[in-house]
Amino acid sequence: MASTAVGSRRSRYGLRAVGLVYVGAIVLIPLYVITYRTVADGWSTFWAAISSDEAVTAFRLTGEVAVAAVVINTVFGVGVALLLSRYSFRGRRVLSALADLPISVSPIVVGLALVLVYGPATGWFGKHLSFQIIYALPGMVLATAFVSLPLMLRELVPVLEEAGDDMEQAARVLGASARQRFVRITLPTIRPALMYGLVLTFARSIGEFGAIRVVSGNIQGSGQTQTTTLLIEDKYQNFEPGTYQLAMVLVLATILAIVLTSFRRSKEDVS
């Protein structure tokens, strides 16, 4: 008995050490280095790097794309999640599998596919359009929304499936219309998952690189389509200063978003 207890304690510490080393190697140390380089270069360098015209435009673009992708994925994510969890129909499994596709397909491939479809001169759909999608904001939003869609669905579908539709049926018999059932029953049920989905989508969106690189054309100067991640890559490739400082801003934005939700989550657990 005693030896098993010691053995399990040993393996517990062993597992803990493995976990710490792993997370340290791939998350903590790189994060530390970025923070260190940002701080070591001094406050004025930081300010200069993040207040240049190209940086401000990049931040604004990143923000616009991310917010648009979050809004689109919230609306369609909730819709598709309800469809997948509440209705059985022909092709449900296919839809469910397709919804996970963006996780397994490389973002570069996503970008190229979008160019082929919506590209201005040669895209089979895009060549008929009078406005530009690729190498402009709509294409960047499209690519980002596509890449981040599964995050919302994967949060919502299990929660909806677990909750079942008993509550909605009960509300229905009590006289609630479809809209009232959604607002009063469904939405409160999925709210924590929805909040978390929003944050994950937002974090993924501001960090998107591959697909957006292909569809944006990475244009600098006037008509800039260069988002923060693309600008960071450029600066890094050209040995220009500001790489770490810009990266730090993205890291901080993500951390802020996650802290905000975990704060909300723990508050909801208490109530």
Partner: peptide, 15 residues
């Protein structure tokens, strides 16, 4: 929603 019936479910369906 317009029949004005009361319905009680096996698994309560509590909100």
């Amino acid at each position: 929603q317009k029949r004005n019936v009361g319905f009680v479910f096996q698994h309560y369906a509590a909100f």
